[in-house]
């Protein structure tokens, strides 16, 4: 299990154990975090699973591919340097303790 800390807009914090190999999006979905919509189910096609990744672990995650980069240009909330689509972040043991902040809106 990899611990992921999802922080909502109002500061509410959810520590969730997510199996290795799953994505940050999948962990949020099953646990019912409404701040991640993930309408396309992880196909990198809808830009509704946007998160801001805490800077300390950003370097441990492979950079966005072309599709993700293009979709990130169109997220509803502000795109920042640490913006990622959570369906494209696959969890490894190295990411234990990963903190992601949810944006104010997804759609």
């Amino acid at each position: 299990m990899v611990k992921v800390i999802y922080v909502e807009q109002d500061g509410a914090r959810h520590d969730i154990d997510v199996p290795e190999g799953w994505t940050v999006m999948q962990g949020a979905q099953r646990n019912g975090l409404d701040g991640i919509e993930a309408e396309c189910g992880g196909s990198c096609c809808c830009a509704t699973c946007h998160v801001y990744v805490a800077e300390d672990m950003l370097g441990l995650i492979p950079p966005p591919g072309e599709m993700e980069d293009g979709m990130l240009d169109n997220v509803v909330a502000e795109r920042r340097p640490n913006s990622r689509l959570s369906c494209q972040i696959t969890l490894t043991a190295a990411l234990d303790g990963l903190v992601v902040h949810l944006p104010e809106a997804q759609s």
Binding site: Q26, G32, S43
Partner: peptide, 30 residues
Amino acid sequence: HRPPLSKDVLLGLALGEQIEIRSRETLARK
């Protein structure tokens, strides 16, 4: 999620529980 059935699931990249939109526990909580 049904769309991954013909994509990631067939490619062996996602198991059943991984594509659940909500777990049973989450629905019970709601």
